[in-house]
Each structure stands twice: as structure tokens, then as C-alpha cells.
Design a protein around this nucleic acid. Structure first.
Lengths: 184, 184
DNA sequence: AAAAACATGTAAGCTGTTACATGATTGG
DNA sequence: CCAATCATGTAACAGCTTACATGTTTTT
């Protein structure tokens, strides 16, 4: 029941921006970093089918332009509610550890669904949890024995730097949102 | 045929560091960032089974300590060859775009399998491809229309910063390996 | 004696991957 | 007219998730 994978939510969110066909979505995935949430027809068409079956999107076929039917999807009210609920989930520690990319996806799709205040709260939670996890990883690094394998230590440092970059990004985004608020 | 998922290679690589039981591996996954490559018994035990079936690892049961048998796995010669081949793949652009984490995993598991020179080549390729991709993402960001959705733009910046962090990390690691080389 | 942690698994269900299939339209 | 691209799919397969199952050893 209901959208379940990142891909499904990505599709739902992109359709919320504007109605599109399956092929439009494929092109979009092929040409942007969204590609990370895959891509291939074997993933996208079945996912659209599922969303339609669940009543989260509806497709309408247009034959006016040519013989070749073009099926355009748009989210239903139920789909939008679902998307809104998904993007308003609080940022949990496990999400930061295991599904960081899902959090960024959630952020990128919450435009027009969450208020500026909710967006700020999301970013605040994101910064808080990511920074806490960075501290945790730093502790783990310090706790490594002196003879620990160098490659493992370096991989850990790679993770730490990546999470630090995410925290910096979120702090900067938050400053941006706060400045906008003050200008109002 | 042969190991196929990241999890399978992670298991193979960890067993190459030292023989361990399934439970040892689960604990290790639970307590380190390796957890990213999942975790749960429903993934690990079947993966070990497959590796064993393929002849990449062998398990030996020890009952000497207690009634409860403890099965310890270690890689076979074939498994080590496989691991060596996997870690010696060149860094391709698609890997950077779609499987960055697999590249880091490959790096972290190549200790004791690749020469220092090969490790440096890997890092050089990593830096080259990641920096090229950063340029590409920057171009995409500049090409965004002024009225493009703010959240999408920010998500793209998040990606850029994350990749930049990876490039910095790899350059630093490379310097470390080069200094070691000079000291020799 | 009970609870927690040890240790190893299985089963159902879903999703994604890869590869293939089909026909329409457009550009050279 | 031929190739490329448009546009939408299907089928087989493998892997992961969640949840459950089972019995042992240690801790309190």
C-alpha cells in the first residue's frame, strides 16, 4: 500500500512539480543527478503502474497530436497528501546513517508542500543529526588502534568528510532561508 | 556466478582481513559505518551461502568450545582472485555518478591485494573522474534558469559539495601514499 | 529463574537490473 | 528509405527488507 521506494517518491514529487509522461521522466532522470534514483524503463514504468494502482497518480492518454498515444501522469489529491506526509517526517538518526540520500530527496521535493518554517525545521534537524553523527564517527576514528588497517581508516575519514560537507551545505541553506525570512 | 553485490564483496573483503563467523560479521556491520552495506541476517546469511556455493569462501564448523557450533568462514584462493580482480577495476565515470560508495568500498578492501603503485593509480583515477563530474555538475547548476525551483538548486549544490569533499579526501590520501613512497 | 545476548537461520514479498520487444515518427 | 530516436512497455532473475523461528549461553 502507498508509495514505498525512493524512486516512487521521486516520481510522485516530479509529477507534482508538473505533469509528465513516463518518457519525460526517463529523460529527466537520464540528464540530471536524479539519475541516482535510477533510470531504466524496467524500473520507472512498473513504478508508475504501481502508483496508479494505488490511486496516487492518474494518467490521461492524449491522441490529439499524433497516432502515437502519449500518457501524461499527474498526482491525485491522495498522492499529494502522501507526498506531503513523507516530506514532513522528522529527521531521524537512522536516516542520516543509512538513507542520507533519501533525506536530500525529501528536501528537494518539499517545495510547495511545506511552509518555510517547516523547511527550516527540517534543515535544523538535518544539521543537528548530521553533526551528531560526525562526532560519533570522529570518536570511532580516534578509537581505532594505531595498527588498524590504513585503508579502513581512510575510508572512515572519507565518510566523515562527506558528512561534514552535508552539514555545511545544510547550514548554508538554512542561512539562506533565514535571510529570506528577515527580508519579508 | 561469482560475487555480484556490494554486500558480497564487503563480506569477502572482511573475511580476507581475517576469518570470521556470520555473527562476527553482523556485529561488525552493526557497529561500524560498514552498516551502510546492510546488516540484517536476512541479507548476510544468504549472501554467505551464495559465496560458499560459488566456491569463493569456505566455512568450517568448530564445536570444541561448546555445544553451540560456530561456523568460521575464510576466502578460498578463487575468492581472493575474485576480490583482487574487483579491486583492480579502473575508476569509470559511471561508477562515480551511480556507485560512488562502491568505489570507496573497493578502496577500503584493496589493502593487501594491490601494490602501493596500483593504489595510487586508483586514487588518481578517482580524483580525475570525481573532479570531472564536479565540473559537469557546476555546468548544470549554471545552466539552471533563474526561476528554477530553489530546492532543486540546493539539492544540486548538496551533491556538488559532497563530490568535492570526496575529491579533497582522495587528493589528501594520495599525498599520504606519495609521502610514504618517498620515505622508502 | 528470567532476561539479555549469542548464533544461525528461513520465508514472503517487493523492487530494481538487464535484456528484449514493439511500433511510430523524424532527420538525413 | 534507412537509421535514429520517440515512447511504452514485458519477462526473468537476483537481491534486500521485514518478520519470524529456534535453540544456547551468559548475566542479573
Amino acid at each position: 500500500m502507498s508509495a514505498t521506494s525512493n524512486l516512487a517518491f521521486a516520481l510522485l514529487g516530479l509529477l507534482h512539480e508538473r505533469p509528465r509522461s513516463g518518457y519525460d521522466l526517463r529523460k529527466l532522470f537520464a540528464s540530471t543527478p536524479m539519475a541516482h534514483y535510477s533510470s531504466s524503463p524496467g524500473a520507472i514504468y512498473p513504478a508508475l503502474r504501481r502508483l496508479e494502482r494505488e490511486g496516487l497518480i492518474t494518467g490521461s492518454v492524449d491522441r490529439s497530436q499524433s497516432l502515437r498515444p502519449k500518457k501524461t501522469f499527474r498526482p491525485t489529491a491522495k498522492g499529494i497528501r502522501q507526498l506531503k506526509r513523507w516530506t514532513s517526517q522528522p529527521v531521524r538518526r537512522e536516516d542520516v546513517v543509512f538513507h542520507l540520500d533519501e533525506l536530500v530527496l525529501r528536501f528537494s521535493l518539499m517545495a510547495g508542500l511545506q511552509t518555510a518554517a517547516q523547511t527550516r525545521r527540517f534543515l535544523e534537524g538535518f544539521v543537528r543529526e548530521v553533526e551528531a553523527y560526525v562526532l560519533e564517527l570522529r570518536r570511532q576514528e580516534k578509537a581505532l588502534p594505531a595498527d588498524a588497517p590504513l585503508h579502513g581508516r581512510l575510508a572512515l575519514q572519507c565518510g566523515i568528510e562527506s558528512y561534514r560537507a552535508h552539514a555545511r551545505w545544510a547550514r548554508r541553506a538554512l542561512r539562506g532561508f533565514n535571510e529570506r525570512k528577515e527580508r519579508q
